[in-house]
Structures are given as structure tokens and as C-alpha cells.
Design a protein around this nucleic acid. Structure first.
Lengths: 137, 137
DNA sequence: GGAATTTTGGTACTTTCGTATGAGCCCATT
DNA sequence: AATGGGCTCATACGAAAGTACCAAAATTCC
């Protein structure tokens, strides 16, 4: 934590210096404005990317959670999504039925509706598409 | 894909415009240089962060590599692994046969052997296990 | 060159999956 | 009360998937 503070202090100071130099270069007519602006842009672009890479924890949590929006967007019901998850875990219709305490026929019905909504012909394809849509890990 | 191209084109044009305006503002003496530079810095900082979040693939490539060792460890042949990949992409045996220029029967044979080695009973289960073993992305 | 694998392919059969259709139940909205 | 959506279940059929067993090319390995 202390290290982070020190690092950022140094960076902040460096940037301040950079800005001062830039301003001076321009006002003194040493350098062209476009060049300075481009430099600044590049530097901060790099800094932005660097920051994101240094803090991947926030990114990952953002990616791996809350698929709720897209699920409802696709018109998937809670039960259908539940079954989709079971399918992706490799269970058969019969097994899914046992786990959810419903008949295999019911599972088939849900699966069929699910495929229509995902425009899939096979369960493997449904899983693939669902992962592309980020509604499955 | 088309959407991505369009998006980036618009962004690129916007940035060009922004730079032009900035340059003009300064040369015309309308705005202070420090302000413009700060603006540019902020904008590109944001863009940098955004890019990293949108393209986590480069970060993940480090994690998603070289499954070769484990594949041979499981006794999977090259062909079997090839078919495993096709399965995970959602293709049917028939489609896989067409893509690899072999008969559907051949694919079935490979699939059957594959399942034994992965101790899977279904293709969805095979995919699941393969991903757990990190031999599939 | 011969042995061991791998790859290919076939037949035949069982099982699972997927679709179509119809129907009853429950719950919320109109 | 009526309508609609979600969940349940059944039957019946066709299409894939999966298994078992066998066998011939093609490769690789020694």
C-alpha cells in the first residue's frame, strides 16, 4: 500500500513536469503544438492501458458476473437458463430432470424452447453461443 | 465485425477532429495550452483504459496457452483432439466429417475413443472435462 | 522390413436428443 | 373474469449420438 502511494506520487510529479515542459516548449516556440499534443496523447494512452493491466481484479469481476441483462434480453426464462447451465456442465436430460425434480419430458420441452431462442440445433452449439454471449462462464 | 470497424472509424475521426480543434484553440489564443493538454491527457487516459477492458484477450493469451503436454498425457491422438475442438465448437458428427473430409462413421469412432480417454459419456461432458483440464479454451 | 499405432471405414444396434403437438396448472396483468 | 406467460408433463416420431466389433490402409517407430 505504501509502495503504491509512493509510485503514484512519483508518476504524478513526473507528469506535472512533463506538462510544464510541454507548455514551455510551445510557448517558447521550440516545438510544434501538434507534436506535443500527440506525445501527450500517446503517453496517456499508454498510462491508461497500463493502469488497466495493473488492476485486472476489477476487470475480471466485471466480466464474470451479472449476465442477467442479456438473459432477459434473449427472452430466456429462469428455468431455461438453469437448464442451460446444467447442459454446459455436461448433464443429460435425464440427469437434469432428476436434479431439478421434474420429468425428462419437461426438460426436453425447456431445452427445445431454449434452442429456439438461442438459434441452436445442438446442445453443444447452444453452449458455444451462450459463451459467446457471455451468459455462461 | 462490421460494427467494430464502424465504431473504430467514428472514434478515429472524432479524435482527429478533437486534435484539430485543440490545435486551433491554442494557435488562435482562445484557450490556454495547459487546459488543452490536460483535456487531451484525460481523454486518452480514458481511451487507454477502455481499450484494455474491451480487449482482455491479450492479457488472457498468457493463461490460454500450450495444452500440448496434457493432451499427450491423456493419450489423445492428434485427430482425436482435432475432433474434440470441433465438438466444443458445436458441430455435429456429420459436419465434422465434412470439414475433415472423412466419413461420419470415422468421426464416431474417434469420438468414441475420445470419450473413453476423457471418461465422458456425452459430448457436452467431454467438453466440460477438457476445459477443466485446460486443453480447451 | 516388420511391428505398433493411427486413421479410416463399415455394419448393426441401443440410447439419447430434439421436435411437434396438445394439455392442465399457477400466477400476474388487464 | 379473462388473457397471457411460464412451468409442468405426455406421447410419438425422426434424427443424432454413442457402442461394439471388426478390418484394411497409412504412418511412425525400431
Amino acid at each position: 500500500m505504501k509502495k503504491t502511494v509512493i509510485t503514484f506520487s512519483i508518476i504524478a510529479l513526473s507528469l506535472l513536469g512533463l506538462l510544464q515542459i510541454s507548455t514551455y516548449s510551445v510557448t517558447a516556440g521550440v516545438t510544434k503544438i501538434e507534436l506535443v499534443i500527440a506525445m501527450i496523447a500517446l503517453v496517456f494512452l499508454g498510462i491508461g492501458i497500463w493502469i488497466s493491466k495493473k488492476k485486472p481484479s476489477q476487470n475480471n469481476t466485471v466480466e464474470t458476473n451479472i449476465p442477467t441483462e442479456k438473459i432477459t434480453e434473449l427472452g430466456l426464462s429462469a428455468r431455461e437458463y438453469e437448464i442451460l447451465q446444467k447442459i454446459s456442465q455436461g448433464y443429460s436430460n435425464k440427469e437434469i430432470g432428476e436434479q431439478l425434480f421434474v420429468s425428462e419430458n419437461t426438460v426436453k420441452t425447456h431445452v427445445s424452447n431454449l434452442f429456439q431462442k438461442l438459434e441452436a440445433k445442438r446442445r453443444t452449439q447452444a453452449v458455444q453461443k451462450a459463451k459467446d454471449l457471455n451468459i455462461l462462464p
